[in-house]
Computed example of a mutant assay.
Amino acid sequence: MQTTNNTVLITGGSTGIGLAIAEVLIKAGNEVIICGRRESKLLEAKQKFPQLHTRVCDVAQKSAREELYQWATSEFPHINMLFNNAGIQKEIDFLTGASGLYDEESEIETNLVATIHLSALFIPHFLQQQKECAVANVTSGLAFIPLKIVPVYCATKAGLHSFSISLRSQLAKTNVRVFEIAPPIVKTELHREAQARKQSQRGIAAPAVAEATIRALKNNHYETIIGEANVLKGASRIAPKFFHNLLNKVATG
Results as ranks from 00 to 15, higher is better:
residue 73 T to N: 06
residue 149 I to Q: 08
residue 58 D to V: 04
residue 118 L to D: 05
residue 32 V to D: 03
residue 62 K to S: 06
residue 41 K to W: 04
residue 145 I to A: 01
residue 106 S to Q: 13
residue 97 G to K: 15
residue 62 K to M: 09
residue 153 Y to L: 04
residue 127 L to H: 12
residue 110 T to G: 07
residue 44 E to M: 06
residue 75 E to M: 11
residue 116 I to P: 00
residue 47 Q to K: 10
residue 76 F to W: 09
residue 136 A to H: 01
residue 112 L to N: 03
residue 160 L to V: 10
residue 95 L to T: 11
residue 49 F to E: 11
residue 118 L to R: 10
residue 109 E to P: 00
residue 109 E to V: 01
residue 81 M to G: 03
residue 50 P to E: 09
residue 121 L to Q: 14
residue 142 L to H: 11
residue 89 Q to S: 09
residue 46 K to W: 11
residue 97 G to R: 15
residue 150 V to K: 03
residue 90 K to P: 02
residue 112 L to A: 11
residue 96 T to R: 15
residue 143 A to H: 08
residue 118 L to T: 05
residue 40 S to L: 08
residue 59 V to P: 00
residue 147 L to S: 10
residue 115 T to F: 00
residue 64 A to D: 11
residue 41 K to L: 05
residue 99 S to H: 14
residue 100 G to N: 13
residue 122 F to H: 04
residue 138 V to Q: 00
residue 40 S to G: 06
residue 144 F to N: 05
residue 156 T to W: 01
residue 34 I to K: 05
residue 70 Q to Y: 04
residue 107 E to Q: 15
residue 36 G to Y: 04
residue 128 Q to E: 14
residue 64 A to C: 07
residue 67 E to A: 12
residue 86 A to C: 10
residue 163 F to G: 00
residue 117 H to C: 06
residue 89 Q to P: 00
residue 105 E to F: 14
residue 155 A to Q: 08
residue 101 L to F: 15
residue 71 W to A: 09
residue 134 A to G: 07
residue 158 A to Y: 00
residue 30 N to E: 08
residue 70 Q to K: 13
residue 136 A to G: 04
residue 137 N to Y: 04
residue 38 R to N: 12
residue 97 G to S: 13
residue 149 I to E: 06
residue 107 E to K: 13
residue 35 C to T: 09
residue 117 H to E: 11
residue 149 I to T: 12
residue 114 A to R: 00
residue 48 K to G: 06
residue 118 L to F: 15
residue 141 G to N: 07
residue 105 E to I: 04
residue 122 F to D: 01
residue 159 G to A: 05
residue 113 V to N: 14
residue 85 N to S: 06
residue 140 S to M: 10
residue 54 T to Y: 02
residue 54 T to A: 05
residue 28 A to H: 13
residue 113 V to R: 15
residue 101 L to G: 08
residue 39 E to P: 00
residue 67 E to H: 13
residue 57 C to A: 12
residue 91 E to T: 09
residue 48 K to Y: 09
residue 95 L to D: 13
residue 34 I to R: 04
residue 51 Q to P: 00
residue 103 D to F: 06
residue 121 L to S: 11
residue 48 K to W: 09
residue 129 Q to D: 03
residue 111 N to F: 04
residue 154 C to I: 09
residue 104 E to F: 08
residue 56 V to A: 03
residue 70 Q to E: 11
residue 65 R to D: 06
residue 88 I to V: 11
residue 76 F to N: 01
residue 127 L to T: 07
residue 73 T to P: 03
residue 91 E to P: 01
residue 50 P to V: 06
